[in-house]
C-alpha cells in the first residue's frame, strides 16, 4: 500500500508534473524571473514555456534602486542549469516589494 502522501507528491519533480499546462513562476540565475505556461520539463529542470514573460532585475550605476525590464517570448526553452526554483504562478503572495 502507498500512503496518501506518496501519491500526491512522493518526489519533488512530481510538483512540476502537476504544473504541466499551468502558469508557472520560475526564478532563474542572473536576477531573472519568468512566468509562462509549462509545456515540458525533464529531470534536469529543462523546461519549455509558452507565452513567457521574463523579468530581468538590474542596478543602474549611481543608483541604489533595483530596476527591472521585461522581455516576452511566445515559446522558449530554458536550460535547467539556470533554474533555481519553480512555483505555481497562481499561488504566490507578495509580502514586500
Amino acid at each position: 500500500m502507498v500512503d496518501e502522501k506518496s501519491v500526491s507528491a512522493s518526489e519533488p519533480l512530481d510538483l512540476i508534473r502537476l504544473c504541466l499546462d499551468e502558469q508557472i513562476f520560475v526564478k532563474l540565475r542572473g536576477n531573472r524571473e519568468m512566468t509562462g505556461k509549462l509545456h515540458a520539463y525533464d529531470s534536469h529542470c529543462n523546461i519549455v514555456l509558452g507565452d513567457a514573460t521574463e523579468t530581468i532585475y538590474y542596478l543602474e550605476s549611481g543608483s541604489e534602486d533595483v530596476k527591472s525590464r521585461k522581455e516576452k517570448s511566445e515559446l522558449v526553452f530554458v536550460r535547467g542549469d539556470s533554474v533555481m526554483s519553480i512555483a505555481d504562478a497562481s499561488n504566490i503572495g507578495k509580502t514586500n516589494a
Binding site: A40, L75, F77
Partner: peptide, 19 residues
C-alpha cells in the same frame, strides 16, 4: 540559457504528453 522557438513548429499538447 534560452532557445526561442517558433510556436507554429511545435505541438505543445504532444510535448506535455511526452513530459
Amino acid at each position: 540559457r534560452y532557445i526561442h522557438l517558433n510556436p507554429n513548429s511545435v505541438d505543445t499538447n504532444l510535448l506535455q504528453d511526452a513530459s
